[in-house]
Write a protein that binds this DNA or RNA. Structure first.
Lengths: 235, 235
DNA sequence: TAGTGGTCTAGACCACGGG
DNA sequence: CCGTGGTCTAGACCACTAT
């Protein structure tokens, strides 16, 4: 059984994910959608509420509903970039691939990742920019034997994290969050001061016990925070 | 503005969290609830849907809605209180209450917490030591109208976080994680350098929409990290 | 078959916020 | 002001399932 509000949800989701409606794009009003789907406003509202919950749109009285800005890896733990949550609409996210090399895994890193040394990897470095300000440095390793398609992917249209999510189902992820001081390179890239407190997120993702990707994302501490709502584990 | 469905949600949540309604308990039918709250069935349905999403109840046609069993796998980010965390890893944990005052909530803070100004609070400052090295500064506010027992508690045996966990069932927590540079006071207490990158964890905990406690925990970045394992959330 | 949740309607009024 | 979302109603029909 496919309900009307599920249809509306899916249709809008498709346009957003497909890039048809860019961040900041104003989506039709509830009334227009109700007319288009020949249903009541409340049914539309249900679909839009679900989209809000997924962080895909924001709704504002009087002005309408807008496609939200891409979120910096909301992907896994419901931990998202909340610093901008209140003003999701209209933020411009961009990224730039700084480097992209195919290598073999060195011993030290292999140990850290608990993967065999010598395995072929794709090593990426990427800068994320939000509203013209550097927001994160992404340093990533993709295991090419698990994700062979990455060998020919240059991530010119889709950032690596998003691309991977679409390509590879993952079954487990591990996160580590630390605070570090910016070294010279990091400070330069993030346009911040050397020694500035930065938030360091490391994520390793597995599929059936094999590492899919390992990524280290460095945010300037003053421009970023993680936030998340949680419920008790047990009652 | 408190809506009807929020009221229904909170009332049912209260009984479940408080243990009044045990897992398996059948909650009133939508019709009964609609009558009790003098609202339409759809409004009740909205509240129940939210409870389902939170995993607190299950709904079955013909038979009704039931309190769900405690969930094991709902783990999002298992950030526990400091002493438990430290002891799990086999370290020796100690703490010292630096200050303890009963105050009234000032306007700025009240706004931040979304609680009424002037409310009575217990303000605590606490230093955590792991294996002889300062590991965290804890700055905490406890709402005394929600946790009246805290008024006479001096936390000489049990640290505030652990004590609160045992005293007050909570239904929602919000975490914010940031990186900050140590100011002079923080650096002195943590025996680290001024300007050192520190990991800042803010947690606000609610019971039925009322704040139980608000705590800010500052860790030296080089001596601490958060970690968590996650699995995809299927919907 | 009967009781329950699942979905939907065609209105209504209110709250908010830009002009 | 007026357009938009936010909430709500008092019904309705359907789907599921225990009995």
């Amino acid at each position: 059984m496919v309900t009307i509000h599920q249809n509306i949800f899916r249709d809008i989701e498709t346009r957003i994910v497909g890039g048809d409606w860019q961040p900041g794009h104003r989506i039709p009003t509830e009334q227009e959608l109700a007319a288009a789907y020949r249903c009541s406003r409340m049914t539309v509202s249900k679909a839009l509420s679900a989209l809000v919950e997924r962080g895909m749109i924001v709704r504002r009285r009087k002005t309408g509903s807008f496609v939200a800005s891409p979120q910096i890896d909301r992907t896994v733990m419901d931990i998202q970039d909340i610093s901008t949550e209140a003003e999701l609409a209209g933020h411009k996210h961009d990224y730039k691939i700084l480097s992209r090399r195919i290598e073999r895994l060195e011993l030290a890193e292999a140990k850290q990742l608990a993967e065999p040394a010598g395995a072929e990897i794709l090593r990426l470095q990427c800068l994320h920019v939000v509203d013209g300000t550097p927001n994160a440095i992404e340093r990533r390793i993709i295991m090419l034997d698990i994700v062979p398609l990455a060998r020919d992917e240059h991530f010119s249209l889709t950032p690596p994290g998003k691309w991977l999510l679409a390509q590879v189902p993952w079954s487990k992820a591990r996160h580590v969050i630390r605070a570090v001081s910016a070294d010279a390179t990091t400070a330069r890239l993030l346009q911040t001061a050397r020694g500035e407190a930065c938030l360091n997120l490391i994520r390793q993702t597995w599929q059936n016990g094999r590492t899919v990707t390992y990524v280290e994302i460095t945010h300037p501490g003053d421009r970023f925070q993680f936030a998340g709502d949680f419920q008790p584990v047990a009652r």
